[in-house]
Design a protein around this nucleic acid. Structure first.
Length: 479
RNA sequence: GUCCCGUUCGUCUAGUGGACUAGGACUCAGGAUUUUCAUUCCUGCAACAGGGGUUCAAUUCCCCUACGGGAUACCA
């Protein structure tokens, strides 16, 4: 029905996928899926000075890992490619020339040094820092002469000098900017690459983008963009500027105050399900109180109208809670598979499937991100280490009695069910007349390495009879 | 500085001109369950930025102030 709706996610490859960008991508994705439109990925790699080797691959991988599939983009060519701006420079040049010919753009030969100096003086004089437009006045022959001499130049847009522009943002109704606040934007840099503003407008038009959904940091650039649409005589897309994601101190979410790279979260064992769910709720909320959603459910619920206007603090505590929830409630096999890599990294042997499964069943209740699952499982591998205090507890008569009793009983059989172990717990406690803490603490400590923890039956179920017995023997006093 | 955007518990948010004693979630505190730990469950703490209007009535509409954020690059 809305097959003509086309949205895009247009990151620049400067390192990693930021969680803020993830949210932008997600909202674009959700909207496209909701209305049956197309979701396009375009790489905005026009700044070669900030380009980071490998970051495109990284970005594609992260998008894939998180489960956001695009309809057109790198490695998935559609009708409107290429989807790398660096491969479209001829196009931008063509359109920039067109603007020059129309008289709405001009060559500017001002050096960076000159511009920096101008800006500093303007600030010192309490003027608005702005290009003074000196190259606007150059005649055609002056321009040609400078070009012939090999002077480097940029192409600037001739922004109207007075009046104002009003446009409609899907979130905030009317927004008005006075033109004298808008600078003569550089369209083509001296290295022959376009700036964001030109490339973005040209590509959005050529790629038939109908809705631009992006971060609020672009709101004040809208006048430039709309002016470009006007002088090209193109129909502008609808615009929607998302509120920013914030640090706890309310500044723009940044690396300095914690993780912001999606891949880092993924590596730490935050599940894609969590990240999607959590980030979706930062600045958007469906009707009602529900907050746990799968991607598919989000698509069903999503509506641009319910996006908030105010910035949202990225609260790691709530992320942790949600991730812990998913770790506990998603399919066990899924968590088992996702956890494997952490055990491998730690060099722990998980070749015994049954044992490994039991460990995950136990440990998933106690972690909020998967890389922590190792700390919760260590005690089932290798030898336990005990403090002096632990050893004092072991050497108590009652402790020794418990250990001897259990070694003897356990050795009667090779396979023990949970129920049998629980019965043995009861029986031994009664027969030895040792109860509560005095009974459980030494036993659990000897088997598990901590006096607090799961049921004895769970511990022995994971360790197996042989390991359990050998751990108990280890705590028997020599005399 | 200037322009633009925003403002409900500490945080994410729901909400409507009167049903609001402002709802949910996270955190925190207390309790129940559990031998202990974790889980689970219950209870509690906690907000409409301030000031003016409009109205019979404003958290909800308008204006101002304050505060926060964004932009002000040959970065995106």
């Amino acid at each position: 029905m809305n097959g003509d709706i086309r949205v895009r996610f247009a990151p620049s490859p400067t390192g990693y996928l930021h969680v803020g960008s993830l949210r932008t991508a997600l909202y674009n994705y959700l909207y496209a899926r909701k209305v049956g439109g197309k979701f396009i990925l375009r790489i905005e790699d026009t700044d070669r000075t900030r380009f980071v080797e490998g970051s495109v691959e990284n970005l594609l991988k992260t998008l894939k890992n998180i489960g956001l599939e695009y309809d057109e983009g790198p490695e998935k060519e559609g009708e409107y490619g290429p989807y790398f701006q660096s491969e479209r420079t001829e196009l931008y040049k063509k359109y920039a020339d067109e603007l020059i010919n129309k008289g709405v753009a001009y060559h500017c030969f001002c050096t960076k040094e000159k511009l920096d100096k101008m800006r500093k003086e303007q600030i010192a004089n309490k003027e608005d820092p702005k290009y003074d437009g000196s190259c606007r006045k150059l005649t055609e022959s002056e321009v040609q002469e400078k070009i012939k001499k090999g002077e480097s130049y940029v192409i600037r847009l001739k922004i109207p000098l007075e009046g104002e522009i009003t446009f409609y943002d899907l979130l905030r109704e009317k927004v008005t900017f006075p033109w004298n606040m808008v600078d003569d934007q550089v369209l083509m840099k001296s290295d022959g690459y376009p700036t964001y503003h030109l490339a973005n407008v040209v590509d959005d038009h050529l790629m038939k983008i109908t809705h631009v959904i992006r971060g609020e940091e672009w709101l004040s650039s809208v006048p430039k963009h709309l002016y470009l649409y006007r002088v090209f005589n193109w129909k502008p897309p609808k615009m929607l500027h998302l509120p920013l994601l914030l640090n706890p101190d309310k500044s723009k979410l940044s690396k300095r105050q914690g993780d912001v790279a999606v891949e880092d979260f993924l590596n730490k064992g935050y599940l894609p399900e969590t990240l999607i769910n959590f980030v979706a709720l930062l600045g958007w909320h469906p009707k009602g109180d529900r907050e746990l959603f799968t991607l598919t459910e989000l698509v069903k619920e999503f509506s641009l109208k319910r996006i908030n206007k105010a910035g949202a603090v990225f609260d790691i505590e709530k992320l942790n809670w949600m991730n812990a929830h998913y770790i506990r409630h998603l399919k066990l096999d899924y968590i088992i598979n996702r956890s494997r890599t952490y055990f491998e990294q730690a060099g722990l042997d998980i070749s015994d499937d049954k044992k490994y499964k039991k460990i995950i069943t136990f440990a998933r209740e106690r972690v909020s991100h998967l890389d922590d699952i190792i700390r919760q499982s260590m005690m089932f591998f290798g030898d336990l280490e005990f403090s002096e205090e632990d050893k004092r507890l072991f050497s108590q008569k009652t402790s020794q009695k418990i250990f001897l009793y259990w070694i003897r009983e356990l050795n009667n059989k090779n396979e023990w069910s949970d129920e049998e172990i629980n019965n043995l717990v009861k029986k031994s406690s009664e027969e030895l007349e040792i109860k509560g803490k005095d009974f459980y603490f030494p036993l659990r400590l000897a088997l598990f390495g901590s006096s607090h923890g799961p049921d004895i039956s769970i511990i022995i179920g994971i360790l197996g009879k042989d390991t359990a017995v050998s751990r108990l023997k280890n705590c028997i006093n020599p005399e």
